[in-house]
Design a binder for these strands. Sequence first.
DNA 1: CCGGGAACGTATCGTATGTTACGTATTTTG
DNA 2: CAAAATACGTAACATACGATACGTTCCCGG
Lengths: 312, 312
Amino acid sequence: MLRILSHCAPMNDFIHFARLCQTPFPKSLGDTGLGTETTTTSIAELIADRIDSMPTGERRAAQTLVANYPVIGLKTVADFSQQAGVSSPTILRFVARLGFQNYPEFQSALQDELAAQLQSPASRTVTAPSRSDAASPMIEATLDNLRETFRHLSDKQLNEIAEKMADHRGHMFLIGGRFTDPLARYMAAHLAIIRPNVFHLVGQESMWRDRLIDMGKRDVLVIFDIRRYQDSLIRFAEKAHQRGVQIVLFTDQWLSPIARFARHVIAGRTAVPSPWDSSAALFVVAETLIGAVTRQMEPDSARRIREMEGLR
Amino acid sequence: MLRILSHCAPMNDFIHFARLCQTPFPKSLGDTGLGTETTTTSIAELIADRIDSMPTGERRAAQTLVANYPVIGLKTVADFSQQAGVSSPTILRFVARLGFQNYPEFQSALQDELAAQLQSPASRTVTAPSRSDAASPMIEATLDNLRETFRHLSDKQLNEIAEKMADHRGHMFLIGGRFTDPLARYMAAHLAIIRPNVFHLVGQESMWRDRLIDMGKRDVLVIFDIRRYQDSLIRFAEKAHQRGVQIVLFTDQWLSPIARFARHVIAGRTAVPSPWDSSAALFVVAETLIGAVTRQMEPDSARRIREMEGLR
DNA sequence: CCGGGAACGTATCGTATGTTACGTATTTTG
DNA sequence: CAAAATACGTAACATACGATACGTTCCCGG
């Protein structure tokens, strides 16, 4: 059953589109009614449960199924096997290991699960918290952090910052602290693609301190600094500020002392039930800004990217 | 919200500043647009559009499909016809009337639609309006990505990975791609504090390729690789795998080819309404793992940290 | 270093599935 | 009311799908 013709494109780039209307009709439950009837445990759980006792090939099957759950399992064995990069028999052995007599039975189970899931849209929102709650308070706290962070962030502010970052008449420098340096690097990696003169300051303090001499009023300095705030960064920010550099500060909710010198301050929530603070909120703000800047520099950035690809 | 558990951290709770947020970012770019017909409109809409001009039998088919959307359409023609109370040819005439060449093509369309829907369940947040934060689609998408990513991630799997990472008999190497290298660095920065022998592989390919000689069965290699997957990383992973190194792969939902060699695969959602892909989900998974490893190594890690502080 | 077993892929087979032709029923139109 | 056209189901058909047997490779233990 369920075969497919064209379009096996394993990984097409972006996918977006169409939402479809939900149908609030009752389902005349026609259960296939055969085989092992107890579907109390979802197939996804079943997989997570046994994935460790599987051989390599079947594990690849399991992984691709989980990654594209459950659509790939609704396609044919051939499609499934191709996307997983294994042979058809491996797929069949995989579903057999899950306890299904044959492939159609496996598909029926997936379909029933899907039907149950789609029927009550509430069940989704109900099961989601319960699962993620059980999974870890960590993710819940992170979600809260994200929401809170953005709640205190006006899009006017974001746009202003993006505008400043998009202004490539001046240079742009990024620097971070011990744990936040990767964020600076992440941002720099993207921005350096869509605009010129982006520099990620790394290495010894003396190295980037000397770069101060190149900085002026038209330049932007992006600093990531969460506690414990590093003295070196504070000193650096102060000197940069004295030279008239525009400072954009990413910090935590307790505000680094650098906030005193900053033109723009982004305060992200960092508290999570972990020995470490979380930089996830700042990371997402950074991604949002990267997107905003890119959008703002269109079509300039697109041209630049194309030109870059040509250089390979 | 914002719960704080256990050990560590002097943290004053809250602080608050005002400011509201609303962000009307539009821009959704291109759709995949392949296939014989442009599916800009969902199939459900297509049906609602033409259902009036259908003969009785096909209309019954349409109704049963809408009532059990889309699951019944994923089953066989026989199942569909039986549930609709019509014959098989009627079903085929029905899908033909919708503009599909044959039944498999119709099923493919349904599957694609389903995949797109499951990927961005943004429509799911009916509760969003109640929360006055009409946040940007960007942050909403990111929140969805996080939820979806963790929904497919059992904590059993997380714990096993954490366990492997906590095992410091062997060495631990981290490496990332063009945009994900900062994630590797971020993780390395934390793990290097709580356990010995953590190495972030950076610089030229030849640099870290030579490190292969130090790697063996007891070692762990953490790779971040999202599309476009980098050949250099794939080659590196393959060689490491041949040496028996345990590979933990952070990738996107389309699974880097490295998944073939990986002992553990973490598939994070990356789709956001932006020209760039989002690594936020992987970032949060990384943070979660960092926390889990730290907790697992207690009180060893605490002692190590204290000792470190003494070295200043 | 060698033997045994597990794992995976290739090739083949039987069959369930989608498809089509044709005959009957039902509705439409002059 | 008759004749035609449309709609629908029955039954036969061919394809492609899932299943299986078999050979090769890889890995582990002796």
